[in-house]
Design a protein around this nucleic acid. Sequence first.
DNA 1: TTTAGCACTCGCTTTCCCTGAGTGCTAAGC
DNA 2: GCTTAGCACTCAGGGAAAGCGAGTGCTAAA
Lengths: 348, 348
Amino acid sequence: MELTGRKKQILKIVVDDYIHTAEPVGSKTIAARMAGKVSSATIRNELADLVDLGYLEQPHTSAGRIPSPKGYRLYVNELMEQQKLSIAETEKINQSLQIKMEEMDRVISQAGRAVSSYVNYPTYMAAARKKSIAARRFELLPVDEHSCIVVMMMDGNRVKSQLLRMQLKVDLEQMPVLVTLLNTHFTGISTEEMNLRLMDVAEQVPPQVFLLLSQTVGYAVEQLEDAGHREIYTAGARELLKLPEFRDADKAHELMSFLADSKENLPVPDEGAMKILIGPENVNDALKDTSVVVASYDIGDDMRGLIGVVGPTRMDYATVAARLSGFADGLTRLFGKQGLPPKEDIDQ
Amino acid sequence: MELTGRKKQILKIVVDDYIHTAEPVGSKTIAARMAGKVSSATIRNELADLVDLGYLEQPHTSAGRIPSPKGYRLYVNELMEQQKLSIAETEKINQSLQIKMEEMDRVISQAGRAVSSYVNYPTYMAAARKKSIAARRFELLPVDEHSCIVVMMMDGNRVKSQLLRMQLKVDLEQMPVLVTLLNTHFTGISTEEMNLRLMDVAEQVPPQVFLLLSQTVGYAVEQLEDAGHREIYTAGARELLKLPEFRDADKAHELMSFLADSKENLPVPDEGAMKILIGPENVNDALKDTSVVVASYDIGDDMRGLIGVVGPTRMDYATVAARLSGFADGLTRLFGKQGLPPKEDIDQ
DNA sequence: TTTAGCACTCGCTTTCCCTGAGTGCTAAGC
DNA sequence: GCTTAGCACTCAGGGAAAGCGAGTGCTAAA
C-alpha cells in the first residue's frame, strides 16, 4: 500500500529528527516541524497508522515514535534528500587522499582512517581481486656468492623483490639458465601449477640448479598468494563510543571485536554500486542492530576496493552516503585507468 | 624509611588482591589471607600506617584500601614475584610469532596483535631506527619503451623495487650510463645529499638522461625516507572496555584516541631493558591514570623494536612483564643476527 | 604490642513518589 | 469524513529517603 504524502512527510520528519537526537519523536515536535499546518492530534492519528503499517515503533506507551527498519528503508529509498558534497568538502576529501601510495595495503588502511574520521563512524576497507594473479617475468641480480636479488613482475604491473640467501654457493654461469627456466616455465600460470612444474623440472636439471630454482619459486609462490589475499582493515572503531547506543561498554566491545576479527563476512556491494543495509537486513548476526553503507571503487583492471561504514540504524544515511561516494570517486580517480599520474603502479 | 616485613607483606596482599578484583581491600580480607596469624584490628593499625606513609589510599572513610602509585612502585621493585613463563606459554608465544614476514610493517603490527590478545591489554608497537639508511646499489630492468623496473638495495639488505613509467622514451643504450651514474654518485649517502648531487649532475649529463635520473632518484629518496620513518601501530584498544576502570565510554574513548593518534610521544625504554611506568610517572597527561610496560627487542643491526602494553594502574605487572619479555625474546631471536633462518631479510 | 569490642561513617541499593512528556480516545467543529 | 480540542491515562526517569553492610577508628583490656 502506498503511503499518503502527509504520512511520508511525517515519516521523514521522524527519521530526520531521530537521526540527530537519538530520542523518540513526539507528535508535538512533528506538528511544530510542519509549521502549524495541522494539530498534534492529527499527527497522533497518522502516527498510529504508521505504527500499524510497520514504519514506526514505540519503545513504550508513553514515548514518542522511532523509525523501524522498514521505515528507514522507505526513507533511504524515497524520502532521503540526496546530499551533494560542497566544493569545500570535495576538496577536503581529495586532500585527505594525497597519501604516499607505495603499498596497496597502506593506501587501503590510510583511506579507511580518513573515511572514518570524516564520517565519524567505524569503517572497514578491503581489496577484492577479480581474478587470480600470475608472475610475468623474473630477473635475478647476483649480490655475492651466497645471495642474489629476485625481482618478480606480476600481472597488473606489480613488482616484488627480495634478497634471497641461497643455500649453496651460486655459480654465476648458472644464473642465465635459471632465469630462462623461470621465465619459460613459471610465468603466466597459477601457483598450484607452479608447484607442479617444479616437480616436473626436478629431473631435468642438475640438483644445484634445482635447489636454487625451488627456493626462488617458493618465494614467488608466497608473494603471489599474498598478493591474492584479501585482507580487511578496520579503522575508527572507537567512534562507536561516542554514540548513545554504544555507551554500554559490552555492546561496544562486542561490535568492535566483530569488526576486528571478521575477515570474510562483511557485506560486499554490487559492482560499482553503493549498498545500504539496514539493521536486520544484514545477514550477519553481529550487525543485526547496526546499519552498513558500502561503496566500491576500481583499482586498476583486476581489482576492486571496498569501503564500508558501520553505524547505528539511525545513522545519517544521506551524509554518509554522499561522503562515502565522494571517497569512492576519489579513489577510483586515483587508481582508475584513465588519467594516471606518471607513477602508475601503486604496489610495492 | 624501610618498611617492616609485615607492612610489606600487607602491602603485597593489598596489591595482589586489588589487581584482580579492582575493589578496595579491607582489613578482614587481609587477615584471612594471612592465615590467622594476626587479627583484623592489628591489620587496621598497620593499614593506617601505610596510608600515612603514602603507600596506600582510601577512596573514602568506610572503604578498604587501594595501592597508591608509590605502593605499586614498591610492589614492582621489591615485592612482585618474578613470574616465569611455563613451557606451554613459551610454546604458545613462539607459535603466535610464526608470521609470514615479508614486510617489517606487517610483522610489527601482527606481533602487536598477538601480544595484545595474550596479555588482554592494548599494545603499541614501533620500530626505532638507530641510524639513517642509505642506498647501496641500483639496477634498472627495461620493460618496454616507456617503463623499466628500478631495483634498489639499501643498508640492512633491504630491497625495494617498482615499475617506473618514464616520461620519455627510453633509449636502451642510455641505461648502462644511468645505472653507473646511480651507483657511483647516489649510493651510501643521505637523502639530502642525494638531492644535492642531483643538482650537481644536472649540467654534466644530457637532458634526457637527467630526466630519467631525477625520476629514479626521486623514487629512491621516497623509499629511503619511508624506510627511516617511525610508525607506531596500536592493537587491541578494545580490550580497555573489559576493564571496570574504563567502563565509562568517555574515558575509554579518550585513551583510545590518544593511542590511535600519538605517533611520537609514547614511552620508550632504555636499550634492552624493560621499563614499567606507573600512573603519574608517565610524562604524558593522557597516560597519567594508566600504567605502561615497555620492552624492546633487536631487529638486525641498525634497528630496535618496541612493544608497549597500556593498562590501568592496577595492571597485573608480574604477568604482563613476564609475557612481554617472552615476546621480546622471541622477536629478538627471530630478528637477531645469530641463528638466522635462510630467509634472512624480513623486509621486502 | 596485640586484640576484642563497639560506635560510627558512608557509598550502594532499593523503594517510593513525583513529574512531565506523550499517548489514545471521545466528542465537537468544519 | 477529516480535523481538532480536551482530558484521562501511562510510564520512564529523576530525586529523596531509608536501610544495608562493609569497613573504619578508637578505647580498653590482655
